[in-house]
Design a protein around this nucleic acid. Structure first.
Lengths: 336, 336
DNA sequence: GAGTTTTACGTAAACGTTTACGTAAAATGG
DNA sequence: CCATTTTACGTAAACGTTTACGTAAAACTC
């Protein structure tokens, strides 16, 4: 038998309204009754039932997070930030990993609707018409994390990927590299795909460097993808002195394959990654990478959700700054 | 205005009871009314409110997961498995990362109690008296994941850490190593600490190998911990030919420091890790490691929770098998 | 000290469901 | 065709809260 507000009321000889007022400290009771009721609460070990509360308040104090992969380190950091802030707001987080599977995503959205969640963070994946319409009907705040939508007015939190890729490429050029390869991830990826390629091409163009045969698009962003793609790159363009990889895992793949081919990093080949996940520093040699403030971004996205919940208004998107985290995988070429 | 069962009832000219019966397909209505009601539901876009349901059924269809670190790759895999099964059971998962912080843990437990969660998976940390008493009062099923409790009768899912450490050590010995070092993680850790040390010592003892000066206990299981610990190990025992690290991250730290010291892996030094997280295969050279079926363990723990929920009985603990995943960080010593 | 305001409550409806119970009509049995 | 069972519903209570409204007493005001 769980004990309810009624039990407290009865034992304290007051009405449930009074108990409720005291629990939520709303005005309308004397010091004495407060003391009495508090004692009874303590004695009985009463704890309010959030479900009953939610039924009235129409707030579940829960937000939903949709992510394509749970295991990727990117996601872990996002989630860590999200979870952090949500907890500060007294809410909890339901993580839904969609595996980039449309059916699963829709199932999860239905679950979230049933559960009456207060907001949604939609991360790292394309916001399709179907998803958007569904969420719109749910009528809860949405924030995009590390993704964008061109078609729908949904606020987002991300870095400027094209700019970041530009910066990374410029960095290699400044270090004296001329023949630079790029391993891009999935081309179709709206945020981590084409924009990074564009940034790369742009930097090369501006510096009048050729780009033919320099880009290999892998089918994904993983380690194995990086290995395969690098093999292709080095075959079609054996003279590259540096590689810009669109993710740290891709970069690790590059490094690993290079190692097998007896190409020394950074002496024979410089490598720069993207994301600066914890992996990067564990690499041999430690990987220079384009850093995004991942957990901060997760935090910001969550704060935006709560701002939208509380003010009932939309909120401005945020572009976060990136930075080059220098380690030891890039070498300065001596000018000849 | 969200539309409720009442709206459906009114529009379909039936009582809410009938609508409810149809929605939950319990008997008691004719084919015709069913059709009619279903149409109205479709037309109005009605979806039942899980909060209201939960109030009556006293089931929130939510389970809580307490983990010390969110970002560690171990946890990601556990969570992935958990999430998987929970979703199959139509439930969602609230992840609470406690940061091994007692106060935060208690706060989370309170949150979970308020939310009336149906069960708790408690992972990778010591179950203190305080936690246990609290959860016991909550009166929901608990399963320990990758941890144990000697004092309380709580079912667990884990591997036999001592045995696994024994196997890893035996493996190195079979490969011809005699002077083997161990980098243990936090000694106080009840599951990943002492048991692994014991397994190591046991294997060494059985093979009549000395163990003095061979064990260094790091303050944690991370990369930096591994670096530091290895420095200490190599100082106090420069002749080790192999190292058993109590986690893959520790092992990576060892490899990195070794690399800096120009100690070649595996030629000059063999290294074996523990956990076989995705990191292991990305290492240079790829890391041989003691593998645990992480996501399967998460799945099993979750299945156990639901079994306990549904049968109202406790359930048997499960020890999962471990295996040595051979890669390239261990070398066979030629017999002299 | 009469009138007004404030304080300190209690009553009861509401939130959106499920479900025990009741009942009229339909189906079945002999 | 009457008695009995079954079907197909409807009514209303219950789940555990919050809160609008009402009210008697206490506290002020001048």
């Amino acid at each position: 038998m769980t004990i309810t507000i009624k039990d407290v009321a009865k034992k304290a000889n007051v009405s449930i309204a009074t108990v409720s007022r005291i629990v939520n400290n709303k005005p309308g009771y004397s010091k004495e009754t407060e003391k009495k009721v508090l004692e009874v609460i303590e004695e009985l070990g009463y704890h309010p039932n959030a479900i009953a509360r939610g039924l009235i308040s129409k707030r579940s104090h829960t937000i939903g997070v949709l992510v394509p992969k749970l295991s990727s380190m990117l996601m872990s950091e996002f989630i860590s930030g999200i979870e952090n802030i949500a907890h500060q707001f007294g809410s909890s987080v339901i993580i839904c990993h969609t595996e980039s599977n449309g059916k699963k995503t829709m199932q999860y959205l239905e679950l979230l609707r049933e559960k009456q969640i207060d907001g949604i963070i939609f991360s790292s994946e394309v916001l399709t018409e179907e998803y958007y319409q569904f969420m719109k009907k749910m009528d809860v705040p949405i924030v995009l994390l590390s993704t964008v939508s061109f078609d729908y007015p949904v606020p987002y939190v991300r870095v400027d990927d094209q700019h970041a890729a530009y910066t990374a490429t410029e960095y290699l050029i400044k270090k004296g590299h001329r023949n630079i390869g790029m391993i891009s991830g999935t081309k179709e990826d709206v945020v981590a795909g084409q924009p990074r390629i564009d940034g790369f091409t742009q930097a090369m163009d501006r510096n009048k460097l050729p780009v033919t045969n320099n880009i290999v698009a892998a089918p994904g962003f993983g380690y194995e993808d990086g290995k395969e793609a690098f093999k292709q790159l080095i075959t079609q363009n054996p003279d590259v002195t540096a590689v810009f990889a669109a993710s740290d895992e891709l970069a690790l793949g590059v490094i690993s394959t290079a190692y097998q081919m007896d190409i020394k990093i950074p002496d024979d080949l410089s490598v720069i990654g993207y994301d600066n996940v914890s992996l990067a520093e564990m690499s041999i040699p430690p990987l220079t990478s384009v850093g995004q403030p991942l957990s901060t971004m997760g935090e910001k996205a969550t704060e935006m959700i709560f701002e939208m919940i509380n003010t009932n208004q939309s909120v401005e998107s945020r572009i976060f700054p990136h930075e080059i985290v220098e380690r030891q995988s890039v070498k300065e070429l001596k000018k000849e």
